[in-house]
Amino acid sequence: MAMMPKRVKHRKSQRGRMKGNACRSNFVAFGEYGLQALEGSWITARHIEAGRVAATHFLHREGKVYLRLFPHKPVSAKPLETRMGKGKGEPEFWVARVRPGQVCFEIGGVSEDVAKQALVRVAHKMPIRCRFVKRRHSL
């Protein structure tokens, strides 16, 4: 099932603006390999679920897949054939706000070759350009 928050303070939110680059979550922190966003976008819970399924299916229960995204933001929509007005529509789906540089998925416990193949499959499910990244050993 697609991810969504258990409880929120406000059911509906305004669209907001996404400026700049990712200044956190922009390096591989849990696994050894990751998929980094090169563009900013809203990524829906369905995208995330599709990516997760693609990775776990390819890995055949080997290794571990880490999701670095969570869809915190509700997106509302008006029903079809409805006149304008009468207030804001009801929440339709949930999205994660992703800025360029954010590491969206991580994989650990498998070889680089396998991780790359799995993350390519995940990248195909994403609505944005992504690149494969490795863990950087800090000083």
């Binding site: 200044c23 980094q36 090169l38 360029p100 540089g101 990244v133 950087r136 000083l139």
Partner: peptide
Amino acid sequence: DLQYDYLG
């Protein structure tokens, strides 16, 4: 310490 750009 080393600081990297947003893409690392």
